[in-house]
Amino acid sequence: MEGKLTTHVLDLSKGLPAKEIKIDLWRLGDQEERSLIKTVFTNGDGRVDSPLLRGEEMNPGEYELVFHVGEYLSQEPLNAAAQLPFLNKVPIRFGIGSQEEHYHVPLLVAPGGYSTYRGS
């Protein structure tokens, strides 16, 4: 079985997928130095169009997804007046231990908080 890394973003305040969220995928080194692997955007379903990593790209190690939610959340009238958003960039660090597993890292976001879990 070929492993893959996927993600999606749901807006809990609307109960809808979050569209056009910028997401950066970073690989972390032994000294926590970061290497940018790619930048993607969510589609109309709050997902990215293809896996972030798959197969041989799934090198075991520590990774970080950075979800740029500030601009998305500021589109709402209640949040637009804020000079500095409470949430701007949401980083999620996680480990990949196998090239053969599916790692799904969803983000559930609202103006006042967020949650994540290892999905399927």
Rank of each mutant, 00 (worst) to 15 (best):
L16A: 14
E101P: 08
D11Q: 07
L52P: 05
A81C: 05
H68N: 07
Y72N: 01
L78R: 12
T7E: 07
T116I: 00
N59M: 13
G119H: 11
R34F: 06
G44V: 13
G29D: 11
E2S: 15
S50Q: 12
V66S: 09
E20G: 11
V66C: 07
E71H: 12
R118E: 05
K38V: 09
Y63F: 02
H102M: 10
L53A: 01
R27T: 08
R47M: 14
K14P: 03
Y114L: 09
L16T: 11
S74N: 09
A18T: 03
V105T: 02
L107Q: 06
M1N: 12
L16F: 12
E101V: 13
P17A: 07
L10N: 13
N59L: 15
E71K: 15
E2I: 15
K14G: 08
V90Y: 04
N59T: 15
K19N: 11
V105I: 13
A18D: 02
G3D: 05
T6I: 15
L10M: 13
S50G: 00
S98T: 00
T116Y: 08
R47T: 15
V109I: 11
Y72V: 06
P51D: 02
P77I: 08
H68T: 09
Y72L: 01
M1Y: 11
V9T: 11
K89P: 03
T116P: 04
F94N: 05
P77S: 07
Y114M: 07
K22G: 08
F94H: 02
H68F: 07
L73C: 00
K14E: 14
A80V: 08
A81S: 10
E57L: 00
H104G: 09
R93M: 03
K4I: 10
A82L: 14
Q83T: 09
E64Y: 03
L65M: 03
I37K: 09
K89I: 04
E33Q: 15
